[in-house]
Design a protein around this nucleic acid. Sequence first.
DNA 1: CGTTTAATTGAGGAAAGTCAAGTGAAGTGG
DNA 2: CCACTTCACTTGACTTTCCTCAATTAAACG
Lengths: 247, 247
Amino acid sequence: MQKGQRNRRALEDREAYPWLPGNLSREALHKVLFEGKRAQLAQISSIAQFKKGENIYSDGEVLDKIFVIITGTVAAYKKSQDGKKHIVTFLYPKDLFGLWGGRRYIVSTEAITPVVAYSFRASALRQQLSRNPKTYSYFVTKICDQLSQNQDHALLLSRLYSAPKLATFLNMQRQAQLMRGESTDEIYLPMRRTDIAEYLGLSLAALSRTFSLLSARRIIKIRNRRHVIIINRKVFEKLANGRRTRK
Amino acid sequence: MQKGQRNRRALEDREAYPWLPGNLSREALHKVLFEGKRAQLAQISSIAQFKKGENIYSDGEVLDKIFVIITGTVAAYKKSQDGKKHIVTFLYPKDLFGLWGGRRYIVSTEAITPVVAYSFRASALRQQLSRNPKTYSYFVTKICDQLSQNQDHALLLSRLYSAPKLATFLNMQRQAQLMRGESTDEIYLPMRRTDIAEYLGLSLAALSRTFSLLSARRIIKIRNRRHVIIINRKVFEKLANGRRTRK
DNA sequence: CGTTTAATTGAGGAAAGTCAAGTGAAGTGG
DNA sequence: CCACTTCACTTGACTTTCCTCAATTAAACG
């Protein structure tokens, strides 16, 4: 299956999950849940703020709160048996997190920029859901999205060489910006290099070298630590999507 | 968080998803759905059979059927941009697959042994769900489990060395056998070496070497291609769970 | 402006990849 | 039931990439 085709389809198809009742688009459901009923929501939610670097919750804690990001970026991570931190996903405004587990959280989360978020008590949300089962599909959709995203991440992790890994990552970030309706002239990277390395399964040194390599080959331009511009789109795409490219 | 503690908790906690209505255990729900109401189910499901190696559905096809395995093993895979096959997950009896996408399947699946499965038309299942929203939580639970499993897989993929990778994989298989109530004297591997390599993100050669290494070091005994016995449990555990072990 | 944190770069070594040849198991047809 | 073909797996030789450790430079922050 071609990549372009897949991307287009993803945009068309992910809107609706036809096997679910309450066949609303995600955008519409987000509106209904988080914008249309502020007054009603206020009863079960509050606004939480986190400083940069602050831990939000940890793997294994009892699951009591669920969050929806208003502004900022969050990293979800696990520690592997060998003690290393592995970032599972980055979360952006409108993303929902905290509900992927059962009785306890299954990942840890940390604010990597200052974060403002809605905070729901899990019990209140449960009641809300049983009163209005249609909103269910919103959550299921979100979880399915997360699942699909995780599978793509696994694919990324098993790529062999650092250059295509990084190019694919940058492309994913760009895609996400597009989805959120932001400009894609520049790619914005709110996280530190270490975080990217932990997401891609590379050492910090290797990641840094790869940034330098892509920059030296004039494929990307590193405006500053948080902003990257794609210069040579053709080679860039080849790297991200290409067959068996190394550097 | 300690590993042993985590495993115990996983067993205790995953049974119920308290933020869901219809707070039934997974085991109970499976019974209700697939054993208690055979007659009712017969109307919306049929039995499907697949030969070893047969493709069940492909990534990108329109999602029309959902399956529950009765006997046999299925591999779910994606092809990455560089053309390589990457196995996302192995599926065993009672596992559900096909519903993780929206309008289309998001992975391909293939029978790696002869497979017998219930086959549901997606549309029929949708009706079933809207009539009985409580069964919803069964599906959500399954998806959350899958998500959690995928995250563990990602962790596995980003481990550096092949020996701990393989040990962890074997341990996962053992754990799964335990969950299914099977004996754990031997680890049964229904899939080919190639499949394991594609799951672990290793070359076939590297995987084979690692099997040989563990065997030479008398950590495991390879009774035959499909059956492995753990001899030195202590070293084995250290490999699978240990900090910074290489070989 | 100085101190701390984040990121880049260099040198050396180790693990896994690739290519290729060889062995073992399984399945088929006479 | 055995010979033959095919497929699955193992092992060897060589190459490459990334990791580790360490030193240096750049940016952020008080």
